[in-house]
Nucleic acid binder design. Structure first.
Lengths: 194, 194
DNA sequence: TTCCAACTTGACACTGTGTAAAGTTGATGG
DNA sequence: CCATCAACTTTACACAGTGTCAAGTTGGAA
């Protein structure tokens, strides 16, 4: 799969993470990451054949370290559908800022890079899955609004919780993170329940 | 402002529009547009110093031809705040598909091109202005939900009506255009009124 | 000692943008 | 009828960043 020393690989992933988190994603070149990792530019290509491969590996690396699955797991234990919805929004909403840098990089990279698009879509499918589960829980409790079919409710929640919406509210509108989470919960309730 | 024959300029704008509308925006190179317009690549640079300038000019060209202002004007004549909200969502919502190709191109171009970002932000500010007006009309009628301050309500509506949300629902979720407009109206009402 | 994996060094092909400079063409005016 | 000029073409090239290639170097295991 990947040749080379795993330690070096990790140093590269770490450097890439730092580089992406701090500053313009598109402006982080392979050479920059290499320098930051203290290896030659070619060493990067030795471990990751293309820029995209590196990016994708970084997202997986972060996911592992930040433990997304564990966080989202918490929301599964909620007793009522409404609580589950809240827990999910909180878990995902507070996860976004942690991955924002890399997410934006991946998003930017989609342009002219199908692999980056795939990696992103993959992440988004995971979020959608969580939305679906939350909606199902609501439905089970009989709390799902009649205005929506179950699928449509999932669509709506998924749209609402998109990374782009987070960016817009957070930076375009200047909402503090806490407000974002609180309001998202309120909006989701309004839209999905009666 | 721009040297060269206005007819040629228009042929270029027209070609660029067609090129962007049909197919991957990032993959439309200056040379492609030139070929489509039946002029040399350099003629493009003669009329538009940079790719971004061309893009921005295309958006303005489209706006003029499609008459955005006229469309949005209609929403100003609504009698009640609620009707005004509906009219605005309908006007904007049905305008999006007409500019989707170029909008996506501009959005993609933001990466590493501040001017493209400015052009896009400018458009979005115009939409926000419309949102603000609709919210004001609701407030005036006393129909604005107590859950939101006026500014916050504008933020919410603006987020809801974002181009990205349209893309996600339209293509990510497969909603027909008509459903998008209908549901958006319903969601806006739910979120903004009691 | 030999050998190998991991890495470095330096050169280079490729793509697309944007620049530069010299040539063509057709209309306008003296 | 010629000069001129604007608009455009043609050709060439600089530049940036990605990715490739081939020839070293180095430290440790067999």
């Amino acid at each position: 799969m990947s040749s080379g020393n795993p330690e070096t690989r990790q140093r590269i992933l770490d450097a890439a993470w730092r580089a992406l988190e701090s500053g313009d994603a598109k402006k982080t070149r392979m050479g920059d990451i290499a320098k930051l990792a203290g290896v030659s530019r070619q060493a990067l290509y030795l471990h990751f054949p293309a820029r995209t491969d590196l990016l994708v590996a970084v997202t997986q690396y972060i996911d592992r370290i930040k433990d997304v699955d564990g966080r989202l797991e918490k929301s599964r234990n909620a007793s009522s559908g409404g609580e589950r919805l809240d827990a999910f929004i909180e878990a995902w909403g507070d996860y976004i800022p942690e991955i924002a840098g890399v997410a934006r990089a991946l998003l930017d990279m989609r342009v002219g890079d199908p692999d980056a698009g795939m990696a992103w879509d993959d992440r988004m499918r995971a979020v959608r899955h969580g939305c679906d589960a939350a909606v199902k829980a609501l439905k089970k409790d009989g709390d799902l609004s009649n205005d929506h079919t179950q699928a449509q409710a999932t669509d709506v929640l998924w749209m609402l919780l998109s990374f782009e919406n987070w960016e817009r509210l957070r930076f375009g509108c200047g909402w503090p993170q806490k407000k974002y989470v609180t309001e998202m919960k309120a909006m989701a309730r309004r839209l999905l329940t009666d």
